[in-house]
C-alpha cells in the first residue's frame, strides 16, 4: 500500500524534516505515527497525499508513484485516500449531509450514488439524525465524526488521520477510535499521527516513532513510548 525508499525532505528554508525514511505498510494495516512535536510526523503524513513532495527517494502510495506524478494526476491520487484533520475542516455554511456529499460531488459521482453513500456513512458514524444540522451546532466529537464520514464516503483504500483526537476529550476520542477500528475491519488501511498515549497503548497496533527526522522505532504491536 505504501512504500517509502530512502525518503528525505529538506524545506526551502533549509530545515531538514526527514532523513532516509524506509517504510513498508501493507493493505489493511492500522499504523500509528508517534513522536515529539517537530519530529517530522506532519511531513511524513503530508507526503502521503502529496501536500509535501519529498526532496529525494521513492514514494509509492496505492501503486502510484507520488514523486514523479504529474500535477494533473494528484486529484486522482487523493480520490483513493481519505484525509482527517485535527481541526475537522468542515464547511460551516453547508449542512452535515451536504458536507459529506460535497466529497462525492467534486468527483462528479451520480446523484443516486451520492444519496446512498452519504446515508450509509452517516449511519456508520452514528449521526444520520443530524443530517440537516449545520456543523456549528455540533460538538467537537460530532464534527470530527462528520469529517470521518466525509473521508470515507468515497471508499478510500487508505485513511490518513493527522491528530484526529487532538482537540477532543478522552471519551469522545474513544468514539472516534471505534469508528476507525470499524473502518479498518472493512479493509481500509489507516495511518494516524497522534500524541494520545492512552489510545496508542490500548489499541495494540503497529507504531512508527519518528524523532529528529528519522524512524527510531517500528514495532508491530507497539506502545506510545513517551511520557504523556
Amino acid at each position: 500500500m505504501i512504500i517509502m525508499n530512502n525518503i528525505s525532505k529538506r524545506y526551502p528554508n533549509g530545515s531538514v524534516a526527514l532523513t532516509n525514511i524506509n517504510v513498508h505498510i501493507s493493505k489493511g494495516e492500522f499504523v500509528f505515527v508517534v513522536g515529539p512535536s517537530g519530529a517530522g510526523k506532519s511531513t511524513f503524513i503530508k507526503m502521503l497525499f502529496r501536500e509535501v513532495l519529498p526532496s529525494s527517494g521513492e514514494l509509492f502510495v496505492n501503486g502510484r508513484n507520488v514523486v514523479d506524478m504529474e500535477r494533473s494526476e494528484v486529484p486522482y491520487l487523493r480520490r483513493s485516500l481519505g484525509i482527517v484533520f485535527q481541526d475537522y475542516r468542515l464547511l460551516p455554511q453547508k449542512t452535515v449531509h451536504d458536507n459529506v456529499a460535497f466529497a462525492m460531488e467534486v468527483i462528479e459521482a451520480p446523484y443516486r450514488e451520492i444519496q446512498k453513500r452519504v446515508n450509509h456513512v452517516l449511519d456508520l458514524v452514528g449521526l444520520r439524525h443530524k443530517a440537516r444540522v449545520y456543523p456549528g451546532e455540533l460538538s467537537g466529537g460530532e464534527q470530527q465524526r462528520i469529517a470521518i464520514a466525509r473521508a470515507i464516503v468515497n471508499n478510500p483504500v487508505l485513511l490518513i488521520a493527522d491528530e484526529p483526537t487532538g482537540n477532543l476529550d478522552p471519551d469522545t476520542s474513544w468514539d472516534i477510535m471505534k469508528i476507525f477500528s470499524r473502518v479498518n475491519r472493512n479493509g481500509t488501511t489507516i495511518i494516524m499521527a497522534t500524541h494520545d498515549k492512552d489510545i496508542v497503548d490500548s489499541m495494540n497496533k503497529r507504531v512508527i516513532a519518528v524523532e529528529n527526522g528519522t524512524i527510531v522505532r517500528d514495532e508491530v504491536k507497539g506502545v506510545y513510548g513517551y511520557e504523556a
Binding site: R78, L81, I83, L91, F102, V106, I107, E108, R150
Partner: peptide, 11 residues
C-alpha cells in the same frame, strides 16, 4: 477541502 477530496483544478 475540494483539493483534499480530489477535485480536479478545472472543477
Amino acid at each position: 477541502i475540494m483539493k483534499y477530496v480530489g477535485a480536479t483544478d478545472w472543477f
